[in-house]
Simulated assay, not measured.
Amino acid sequence: MHRNMDERLPLMEATDGARIEGVTCVRATEERTSQRGTTFRRILLGNRHGQFTLNVWQDQMPAWHGIAQGDGVWVSLIGRAGSGGYGPSWSHGEVVRLDDSHPVRDDLLPPCPVPEAELRQRWDALVAQLSAPAQALLAVVLREVTEEDYWRAPAAQRLHHAVAPFGLVWHSCEVAEAALLLARLPRYTALLNTDVLILGGLLHDVGKTLEYAVQPGVGITRAPLAAARYHTTLGVQIVTAAVTRAEAELAAAGTPRWLVDAVLAVIESHHGIREHGSPTAPASAESWVLHAADLVSARLAATQQALETATPLAEPTWYRAGTQYLQAFHEVAVLANTPPLPDAPREAVAPTVEVGEIPEGVVRLNINLEEAR
């Protein structure tokens, strides 16, 4: 059988009898037991197009011997009809482990949709608005994490800005820019400090340089310490360490302690409440604005991603109801902003009124709305 070891596996929804083949990666694997007590392996397959799960049953397991998380594989899959309340699924026909040097292991993530040159321009424009003391604080923090790691980091595993490199920079620039837009509201301009808004936007997620990593064949992973220490507390740790190491440098630059404290407050409170990972709730005006700006950036990016990867409404699937509703609202919004076509001249039609047998004292009207329109 001819195998194309360069073509990526098309990640599509299974239909009964469908056949697909190509290269992908084993992003995760887990041993599980069915309700009938049968042991099987659940494998998460993925490449730059997306990911989906594949159940490997006992009679198929020998073919997967020696294949582990992070490995690249060539697979052929066969669609099976759903049963027992579950939708259609894929079953594997053949699998071949790829060499570790295969490029599929390094191109699991979609590219950042914003070119690096544009991100650099936006970053420079934000930094140019900072005072010299604020620029000094930003410089020592980036030196602590290294600017290379900051620009290489993703902003999330999957929900928003889940790209690497540039995911964190893309999201951080959006947050700072959104915060500055909110600061233009006339009544509140004098209340908000520009240095805190920009630094808070660019550094609010700096803890993600320690929280996330990109692993070949797997994609974006969370560091073990992230289970105990969220990026809000990791960010506070990074900034505190940077300021301690560069105390004399910051003093010479005139960086005030209140600015450091304000940035730390933004970092630890930008998720709003403890249940969402914030040790403290937003207390300052800048903290509230950056909390809102963070939500705007994350939710808009997630919505855009859902719309771009959604199944057409004409072909709904049983497990994408949320995306279907999102599409429906999006299409309603598009129609609402589309100028209506002029109605053709119509003859006036009198409403049709039907009166049948009704209880005494009750009047019932049945108007044909189509003719009455």
Rank of each mutant, 00 (worst) to 15 (best):
A301I: 06
R274Y: 13
I238P: 00
D149L: 04
C173H: 04
T15G: 06
A336T: 09
E331Y: 12
A226S: 11
Q35P: 04
Q135L: 05
R19M: 08
E147Q: 12
E211L: 00
A134V: 00
V145D: 05
T311F: 10
I367R: 11
T232I: 01
D149E: 15
D100L: 11
S101G: 07
A306V: 11
A328Y: 12
N47M: 08
L159E: 13
S83E: 09
R143H: 13
E31K: 15
T38R: 15
E118T: 14
G322H: 10
G272L: 01
Y188I: 12
A68K: 14
L225P: 02
Q51T: 12
M1P: 00
V332I: 13
L295Q: 11
I238K: 07
E116F: 13
A132E: 10
V140Y: 06
P279V: 02
A179G: 06
D71T: 03
S131E: 04
A213K: 14
P279N: 03
L199R: 05
A162K: 09
V362N: 12
E148P: 03
E357T: 08
E144N: 03
R120D: 13
V73M: 03
I273A: 13
R19V: 15
P312T: 06
W74F: 12
H65M: 10
V104Y: 11
A226F: 02
S278V: 01
A328D: 11
E357Q: 11
R19I: 13
T221V: 14
H231N: 02
P133E: 00
A241L: 00
Y188F: 14
R3M: 13
W90E: 02
S76L: 02
